[in-house]
Simulated assay, not measured.
Amino acid sequence: MNATQDFDGLCALVTGGASGIGAAVATLLLARGARVAVLDRETDGAPHGTLALRADVTDDAAVRDAVDRAAGELGGLHTLVSNAGVGSIGTVEDNTDEEWARVLDVNVLGMVRTARHALPHLRRSAAARPGAVSITHTCSVAATAGLPQRALYSASKGAVLSLTLAMAADHVREGIRVNCVNPGTADTPWVGRLLGQAEDPVAERAALEARQPLGRLVLADEVAAAVAYLAGPGAASVTGTALAVDGGMQGLRLRPAAG
């Protein structure tokens, strides 16, 4: 099989798939042969050729209905990419209990709800296509590196990392692989909205670029390529893995550039 069509015959669901990283993932999976459904609160930006399903990941009944519809209309479900998420800025003194509840509800429980309803469909697919069934979470470098002004966001992504490992252990013998991708700061509309909250958005963007050793923000297409690897049949022996796409932010410690 042509490697560029390695998702031929596979059905994928991408949450948060109408913009940013999710839209890039959906577009790439389509290009590589998958049938793709997108679940999002607003679906206007869903890539052409996807099945656009409007649902909020904080609404369990809506998620259940969307997942079941995706599996029914696509003809099954082999790949779940759980990407929907929200950001938050501040220290532990800055975010209210209500904000903590909201972010954890989206970033952690949203993944739990989606997986809960996808698993029966994934199990059926695993019996027919060994090695081709997977769940991939969008985590973050914030799960593994201490970042300033990101206490709530980091806590939510730390939970996603632990959830990924636990789910990988729970479902490996069912033929369902579970991994996550850990982007650095990505150049997406979501990050653009966070920058818009800064006192000096230009200076904040420059600081975000400088803290990644490559000296630039990560591109959504670069994260999508990592997701496609983890979700694809070529990664049939990869489970319980966190793949960093962060411009070297987590692992590299460079000396300051010479002045």
Rank of each mutant, 00 (worst) to 15 (best):
A61D: 15
V86L: 12
V36F: 05
N83F: 06
A159P: 11
N95I: 04
G184V: 02
T27A: 12
H78E: 14
G110H: 09
I89C: 03
L243W: 02
G9N: 00
L219Q: 15
E93Y: 13
T43Q: 11
R69L: 13
A206Q: 15
H137Q: 13
D97Y: 08
Q212F: 07
V141S: 12
S82T: 13
V36T: 03
W100D: 01
T79M: 14
A34P: 07
L13F: 00
A226E: 01
A242E: 11
A151T: 08
Q212N: 06
R211E: 13
A12T: 00
S156C: 08
P189F: 02
G259I: 11
L10Y: 09
R35F: 03
E222H: 02
E93H: 15
L243S: 07
A12Q: 06
G87S: 13
I89D: 12
L80K: 09
V14C: 05
T114K: 00
H171G: 09
G146K: 07
M249C: 09
E174C: 12
A128M: 11
H48W: 11
H137W: 10
T164E: 01
T43P: 05
L80H: 02
T96C: 11
G234C: 04
Q250I: 08
S140H: 07
A168M: 01
V36C: 03
G20I: 04
T185F: 14
A258N: 12
C180H: 09
D59Q: 04
P189E: 10
T188H: 03
V160Q: 05
R35I: 08
L80M: 04
W100Q: 05
G232R: 10
G85C: 08
T188C: 04
F7C: 03
L217D: 05
V178T: 04
D65T: 14
G110W: 03
A132P: 02
A236G: 13
L243A: 07
L217E: 03
D221V: 08
V25I: 14
A143V: 06
G75A: 09
R116N: 09
V238P: 02
E98R: 14
